[in-house]
Design a protein around this nucleic acid. Structure first.
Length: 525
DNA sequence: CCCAGTCGGATTGAGCGG
DNA sequence: CCGCTCAATCCGACTGGG
């Protein structure tokens, strides 16, 4: 059923094997140095195998996938005025085919110049549309308070909410208004599309020329949550992606960012996309009537032994040929608990190292150092899928040849850092904010093992990241290029039975800390 | 309506060292 | 017996799609 190669979406893939060297361009020789970082002296070790080769499936095929078909301006004839007009008409045709009004497309081409790329033009049009709409509607609406602004008022620290009074107020009227706003920029992938449907996206002019930011959370949030998150993050539409296109397990997530989307490339080598390829030892025991090709989302808890025992007993009772009722029961439980076949009549939950592999982390990333099994599941269940995030971040590679300064919020076990490293982007200065000590230990350990040349600064509590602190870092190493993080999903996740309170819940409301810091950075830098 | 799917949380008890 | 860690085992609701 989940056949990534058999469905219609694969038409959009442009198979290309020519870019290996670029993606594999990891610095080869790394000197032995000692670095000072937040009280830790990091003695790095000689390790030429750092980078993409750290990945556990080095034998997998190396394929580059590009999604966007709209940016093939290289194929246009390129000499003389005639070709210029031809090119302009061609771009106009593309914009109109994307359902932009022809007059707005013409204005955009005129304002942005004939050499502008499609994405710049769509940005321009969308920004103009949205600004016009919001301005006209804000004039007609009375200002109202809502719970989020009250929260922020309480949490306000350094007075960096310059635009708070301009922030949209989320009562019912505003929700309706925003739905209409969203309609004018559909096509960036909806929560139900979950990739691949990236045709255009809005980058509001508020964020133009500012540091890049990248925000992540679960796609299946309660109604209205993503709309609210968008309203804070510059009205940018979330990009909903299921990681089943990047690995053998599903992971439905929404991403809000102001990164370019053209010329993305995948982290290499491409991981196996089916259970059979990812976990070859299960093949021997996998019954033909269990038709699963991919796993469900890897969450923080695994099946209790009672579940696998019941399955074993049910199968043993009916011997070789289980009747349809038993098959249905077993498959349902396997789907529910993400079980794999490890023996005759024997299913089992995934091991932590299988979590690591499926999520794109190096083997033993979370192993040892005082980390127990439960903690590993918890940390991994909360982590990024590295290949997915790397695909989005791949556009940064050419833009920061000398390395990148990253503000990593809610770092966890360092999915963002691992992704950037895998892309061969040098990590110059990384300020990592992570509350859990064991996770900080994991990231620091990875930092040492991968022989990082840059500086790792560890911060415990995101609420302690003041504007004064930010300014200090900015003067120290010249500003951040990327702010990245996924705020806690505890109160948003569908599997929470106790406290699914939405964005204002105890943990998930830390989103407003993410917003606070991004907004502050937009004004400081 | 039925069905599948979900970055979870609280409690309990075994096991351990003191 | 106490305090602690860790693993096991309970516990539905909400959303979207067919």
């Amino acid at each position: 059923m989940d056949d990534p190669e058999g469905d219609g979406s694969s038409n959009e893939y442009n198979w290309n094997t020519d870019d290996e060297d670029e993606v594999f361009g990891i610095p080869s020789s790394v000197p032995n140095i000692i670095q000072q970082s937040c009280g830790h002296n990091l003695l790095t070790l000689e390790d030429p195998s750092a980078g993409a080769s750290n990945r556990p499936y080095s034998s997998a095929k190396k394929i580059d996938i590009q999604l966007d078909s709209s940016d093939d301006e290289d194929s246009y004839p390129g000499s003389g005025e005639k070709s210029l007009n031809f090119e302009r008409d061609k771009i106009l045709t593309v914009l109109v085919s994307m359902e932009y009004p022809i007059e707005e497309a013409l204005i955009a081409i005129e304002k942005c110049g004939p050499e502008a790329e499609i994405c710049e033009l769509t940005d321009f049009i969308c920004a103009a549309q949205l600004e016009k709409e919001i301005d006209s509607q804000l004039q007609n609406l009375p200002k109202k308070k809502h719970d989020a602004s009250v929260y922020m008022h309480k949490k306000r620290r350094d007075g960096y909410y310059f635009h708070r009074e301009k922030r949209l107020k989320l009562d019912d009227e505003m929700e309706m208004m925003q739905m209409r706003s969203s309609e004018s920029m559909t096509g960036f992938g909806t929560r139900n599309q979950l990739y691949p449907a990236v045709t255009r996206r809005l980058r509001h002019k508020v964020t133009a020329g500012q540091p890049y930011f990248y925000y992540e959370n679960v796609a299946g949030a309660p109604k209205g949550v993503w709309r609210k998150i968008s309203s804070f993050l510059f009205e940018i539409e979330p990009e909903f992606v299921d990681s089943k296109y990047f690995c053998a397990a599903a992971r439905k997530r929404g991403y809000i960012h102001n990164l370019p989307i053209e010329n993305r490339s995948r982290l290499l080598p491409i991981p196996p996309l089916t259970i059979q390829e990812a976990l070859p030892t299960t093949k021997r025991w996998w019954p033909s009537w269990d038709t699963r090709a991919q796993l469900n989302c890897l969450i923080t808890t695994i099946a209790p032994a009672t579940v696998t025992e019941k399955i074993r007993k049910a199968l043993e009772e009916c011997d070789a040929k289980p009747p349809p009722t038993v098959r249905e029961y077993v498959v349902k439980e396997c789907r529910n608990w993400n079980l794999v076949w490890v023996g005759k009549n024997k299913v089992a939950p995934l091991e932590p190292d299988e979590y690591e592999m499926l999520l794109g982390f190096p083997k033993d990333h979370t192993r040892g150092g005082g980390i127990n099994r439960t903690m590993r599941y918890k940390a991994l269940g909360n982590a990024f899928q590295v290949d997915t995030v790397a695909y989005h971040l791949s556009v940064l590679k050419g833009r920061f040849p000398k390395g990148i300064n990253v503000l990593s919020l809610f770092s966890g076990i360092g999915g963002a850092e691992v992704a950037l490293h895998g892309l061969g982007i040098m990590l110059r200065n990384v300020v990592s904010v992570e509350v859990a000590e064991e996770n900080r230990n994991i990231l620091r350990s990875w930092w040492e093992q991968t022989n990082q040349q840059g500086n790792l600064i560890e911060v415990k509590d995101v609420q302690n990241v003041t504007c004064g602190q930010l300014e200090q870092w900015i003067t120290s190493f010249g500003g951040f290029d990327l702010i990245i993080g996924g705020s806690p999903c505890n109160n948003i996740s569908g599997s929470n039975r106790v406290s699914r309170n939405g964005l204002e819940g105890k943990h998930s409301s830390l989103f407003y800390e993410y917003y606070r810091i991004v907004e502050a950075m937009m004004h400081i830098q």
